[in-house]
Amino acid sequence: MAARKAKTKPNVSAEELITYYRDMLLIRRFEEKAGQLYGMGLIGGFCHLYIGQEAVVVGLEAAAKDGDKRVTSYRDHGHMLACGMDPNGVMAELTGREGGYSKGKGGSMHMFSKEKDFYGGHGIVAAQVPIGAGLAFADRYKGNDHVTFTYFGDGAANQGQVYEAYNMAELWMLPVIFVIENNQYAMGTSTKRSTKSISYWERGASYGIPGEEVDGMDVLAVKAAGQKAVDHCRAGKGPYILEIKTYRYRGHSMSDPAKYRTREEVQKMRDERDPIEAVRSILLTGKYASEDDLKSIDKEIKEVVNASAEFAKDSPEPALGELWTDIYA
């Protein structure tokens, strides 16, 4: 983990910082609530929380513009909230209700929003990587300047199809940003135990794809790297790789006892590198915002999240007839 400290006086507006703070906090509180609802039996199956990794999606979304696309794995709640999808619809999908993004038929791992150009939510490790390259293929074919953010983890980074996609993406100069969210653990296997060369971004060199490592606990660093990658893609220079070093505080899924790492390791990361605390600190020390300002944001977020939980509980289960719809267009 690169231990780069966030600058205390970065070249960024108060408005921008507050937006990052709010967006990251929304993900954090939303995920905490999801964990709670899971514990209450309202959410079933697999549920992979994004807590700790918030700066990755919030930083990159700050570099995106309308029409850009994103696709990710099953740890997808943060991506959906960051691209502006409705927390109510996401939470109601988690509870398997009619008001969910997939009418309750997708669940935590399988959500989509055509409106927000969010293409899933994919449950098969690394399947989203060629799919993301394909979305970029479509944009290049149509001749627009949109880019696709294709997120995957350090575990997926060892899948063969990632490299098939790298090869074709560079061969066909596809405007795709391969975002490796390296949270250091593929489920319970640390990168050191699964991977010989753990500098994943360097693998792009074999295909002629440039890339870099980014401090994923620093939203400003992520945004800056994202902007660079986006500029590269929009200029028609083909794909770009961002390996974003991040950390998930919670287990792989809700059923993970997390015996593969120490409590101290997690606590140290929370204490020293928390991405939300980092922005909070900049806001306060730089006098961009007061404690009261932040308190009111916290309150506002809490209300949004509580409302989403209420919506998700109140929304009815899908009608039985839904079993038979949406199989064919």
Partner: peptide, 26 residues
């Protein structure tokens, strides 16, 4: 060659790219 495209011998990869292109409206 924009519409008739030779791929490398990587069925897993190009099938996935095809699916992504379909999601993207092609």
């Amino acid at each position: 060659d924009k519409r008739i495209i030779d791929t490398p011998i990587t069925e897993h990869g190009f099938a996935g790219i095809g699916v992504g292109a379909a999601f993207g409206g092609l």
